[in-house]
């Protein structure tokens, strides 16, 4: 090669460009990494809804529908009742996967976030990159899940199409919180298992996923109220079969998730910056 090529970083690297697009550069890394596992992501994206729909939607559903003459919880067939909840669960879990272990990977296992930081990205840009990549995967997961639900005839209203952007958005808000939590983890000191068992599992069980939340006694019902999954599920039911929700509650659902998202991002931005510069 000829020596004339060496221009020097000052001429070569546009720092304004990095300031503007840095988050996307960080996301590009994560997405490239994700694509290494695309077969697994695709298989899970399709297999997960198929398994749930067959076992619970059809299996449990036929039992419930038989006993309720097709007017199960909320007055609709059981499949229609749980479809929005399953979609919300998939959206939240899918994004969560992209912000938990990848964050520990970035800070501890391979320290790739430190390489990004040394190259000129800020902690905030790295955090945003993680969220952007999680959303990218969520676009795929939620769309596939939605299409399969539609194929199973789980939606009765055309407004169900709104579920795709809304659940992606709710998933991103939840991911921001989980990313903030992950930013505080040192290695995998067992916390993910604890969070999985004592936060995620109860959330799944007590968020009105399989039955209406109102059937629970008040002493447990609050778990649903604070659970992002309940908010995502309620909104989902509203759009997929006209589940009645007051406009106030619509605002509450969107407002709660948006606030969680903003809080998660703020905490994550700060913690990422602190850890990278420590």
């Amino acid at each position: 090669m000829s020596a004339g090529h060496w221009r020097g970083a000052t001429a070569l690297v546009d720092t304004n460009r990095i300031a503007k697009f840095g988050a996307f550069y960080a996301a590009e890394y994560r997405i490239r990494n994700m694509l290494k596992w695309w077969q697994a992501i695709v298989a899970f994206g399709i297999g997960n809804p198929l398994l749930y729909l067959t076992s619970i939607g059809i299996g449990v559903g036929s039992l419930i529908d038989k006993n309720t003459n097709g007017a199960g919880p909320d007055g609709v067939k059981y499949l229609a009742f749980i479809a929005p909840a399953l979609l919300a669960t998939a959206a939240l879990q899918g994004t969560m996967e992209e912000v938990t272990f990848p964050v520990v990977h970035g800070f501890d296992w391979r320290k790739v976030f430190f390489a990004m930081h040394a190259a000129g990205l800020t902690g905030k840009q790295v955090a945003q990159g993680v969220i952007i990549s999680a959303i990218t995967r969520s676009v795929f997961t939620v769309s596939v899940y939605w299409a399969i639900l539609w194929a199973f005839d789980a939606f009765s209203s055309p407004s169900a199409l709104w579920l795709i952007p809304i659940e992606i958005y709710f998933g991103a808000c939840f991911a921001a919180v989980m990313m903030a939590v992950s930013a505080y983890m040192k290695e995998d000191d067992g916390w993910f298992a604890i969070i999985g068992r004592f936060v995620i599992a109860p959330m799944f069980l007590f968020s009105g996923t399989f039955y209406a939340l109102s059937t629970l006694p008040l002493t447990i019902r609050w778990v649903g109220w604070i659970s992002p999954l309940w908010h995502a599920t309620e909104i989902g039911r509203y759009f997929s079969y006209d589940h009645p929700i007051s406009s106030t509650m619509l605002l509450v659902h969107f407002g709660y998730m948006t606030l969680l998202g903003i809080a998660g991002l703020l905490v994550a931005n700060r913690k990422f910056a602190l850890r990278l510069a420590a």
Binding site: A9, L12, V13, I18, Y25, A26, Y29, M116, G120
Partner: peptide, 8 residues
């Protein structure tokens, strides 16, 4: 990917 962090 490292080059991409610089927007190259």
């Amino acid at each position: 990917i490292y080059g991409r962090y610089f927007g190259l």
